[in-house]
């Protein structure tokens, strides 16, 4: 496939994954806060901005976090490069340049998602409608993902889409794991029955759609250790970093000129395997540094893919 189109398809897929992550994250967080009535609005809503890595951009425009500002910044604010609205514009542009690659049914599903987000955000999304709005987006994304698997040939275009999703998803998981360190508990504080039984770690699991799988597979109460171990090292959970890297590498195997990118993936896998989970579970700043390094590793993998396969001059996506 053409290098230019590979790049379009790659970014299209990253933005789809980003929309899915953002929508799910807001939904989960919203529900979490309903059970924490006493938390100050700033402390309650700022974590969403931190997880999204948007502290600087957000604080340029707002001094404090609250529900209205944070949700509208994440959903409809054109000043936020990662807002649902901006991500959908990026998807639209990339879809346009790669239109011929996609089966018509898939093209239609993606463009109706773009249209839905644009239409709904023309007015402010009220709290009462927010859940519906985000649920609809999540459902449309599931349909798109189904159509990608079922209607696209599992060829290079498909693999670029997969690789982009894996990178975006691993990044999201690592960010979600980083928040409890800024806010709430570590394992050391646990004793007896906690009032909120590690609600924050449970929220982390829910934010990446892994809560049920944790219960089924880990079969222990939610804990920092269990959660870190599951979301970093599980090789069968779609949201787990290890899973994402394994699958990413499997995609890369099929490409020529893949040595640089595969070396980066390999190093990152080793870095994952070397994690001292117990230590990370008890030391928030160690955890933060560890995850920060991991995220840089993901950037390196992305750069290796881009320099190997995409056209030399980066275009605005």
């Amino acid at each position: 496939m053409l290098s230019r189109v590979a790049e379009n398809v790659y970014w299209l897929s990253r933005y789809l994954e980003r929309i899915q992550n953002t929508a799910r994250m807001i939904n989960v967080h919203d529900r979490l806060l309903m059970d924490l009535p006493d938390v100050h609005p700033h402390d309650a809503w700022m974590p969403l901005i931190s997880i999204s890595g948007l502290n600087t951009q957000y604080l340029e425009h707002f001094t404090r976090a609250n529900e209205t500002n944070v949700t509208s910044f994440l959903i409809a604010d054109t000043r936020n490069p990662g807002s649902l609205v901006n991500a959908s514009v990026a998807i639209k542009n990339n879809l346009r340049s790669s239109r011929d690659i996609f089966p018509k049914v898939l093209y239609q599903k993606i463009s109706s998602l773009v249209r839905y987000i644009r239409q709904e955000t023309e007015q402010e999304i009220k709290k009462a409608n927010r859940r519906d709005f985000l649920d609809t987006i999540e459902r449309q994304l599931l349909e798109i993902s189904g159509a990608v698997h079922a209607s696209l040939r599992h060829d290079q275009a498909y693999r670029f889409m997969r690789m982009a999703s894996y990178l975006e998803r691993a990044d999201m998981t690592s960010r979600v794991l980083d928040t409890p360190s800024t806010l709430l508990s570590t394992d050391q504080q646990q004793s007896g029955i906690l009032p909120f039984e590690n609600r924050d770690w449970a929220a982390a699991l829910k934010a990446v759609s892994a809560m049920q799988m944790y219960r089924r597979h880990v079969r222990q109460p939610v804990s920092a250790t269990g959660c870190l171990n599951f979301l970093l090292n599980d090789d069968q959970l779609p949201a787990a970093c290890c899973f994402c890297l394994l699958r990413l590498d499997r995609c890369l195997e099929n490409f020529k000129h893949n040595d640089v990118a595969r070396t980066e993936v390999k190093q990152l896998m080793e870095y994952l395997a070397s994690a001292d989970i117990t230590h990370l579970a008890s030391d928030a700043s160690a955890r933060h540094n560890y995850l920060d390094q991991f995220q840089l590793g993901l950037i390196n993998v992305g750069n290796a893919i881009a320099t190997t396969y995409f056209p030399p001059v980066q275009e605005p996506a």
Partner: peptide, 30 residues
């Protein structure tokens, strides 16, 4: 885009193509 899709052709722009030794090539990921 429609025609490229219907006839199984690559949809290319000028920057996707290059001429070497009087032959035309497209810049593929391979």
């Amino acid at each position: 885009a429609f025609l490229a899709q219907e006839i199984g052709a690559e949809l290319v722009q000028g920057r996707d193509l290059v001429v070497k030794d009087d032959k035309l090539y497209m810049r593929d990921v391979d």
